[in-house]
Design a protein around this nucleic acid. Structure first.
Length: 106
DNA sequence: CTCGTGACTCCCG
DNA sequence: TCGGGAGCCACGA
């Protein structure tokens, strides 16, 4: 199970995302120690969310946009986020200045 | 075991 | 200002 410390940290961080907030792959990767491992974060998230109850919907890309395609579950994620109070603008983007969660702001 | 791929992001020309 | 390339490495087949 426990692969690398990085993976464990990523999982832990995702669990730490407070409701009503979102974060980006890059932020998680950076907090986990490797800011270039954003892709791995996505991979881990996708894989883990299938087995565990991870708030995967709280993870979006750097544009403040959902990376998924409509057929992939875009609408589902959007609905989950709106249910937590996240606001999407006219471009379906989330204002990261308001909703971005960067750990506990060390 | 090896190989290909990817819910991404940053840097440099 | 904008575009393309490179980096990162876990997971599934």
């Amino acid at each position: 199970m426990s692969s690398t410390p990085f993976t464990l940290r990523v999982i832990n961080l995702i669990h730490s995302i407070p409701s009503g907030k979102v974060t980006t792959y890059g932020s998680i990767a950076a907090m986990a120690g490797n800011r270039r491992a954003a892709r791995q974060v996505a991979r881990i998230l996708h894989s883990s969310s299938r087995k565990e109850h991870l708030p995967w919907h709280r993870v979006i890309n750097r544009e403040g946009r959902i990376s998924l395609a409509r057929q992939q579950g875009y609408e589902d994620q959007k609905e989950l986020l709106e249910n937590e109070g996240i606001i999407f603008d006219v471009s379906d983007k989330i204002d990261l200045n308001i909703f971005l969660w960067q750990g506990d702001q060390s």
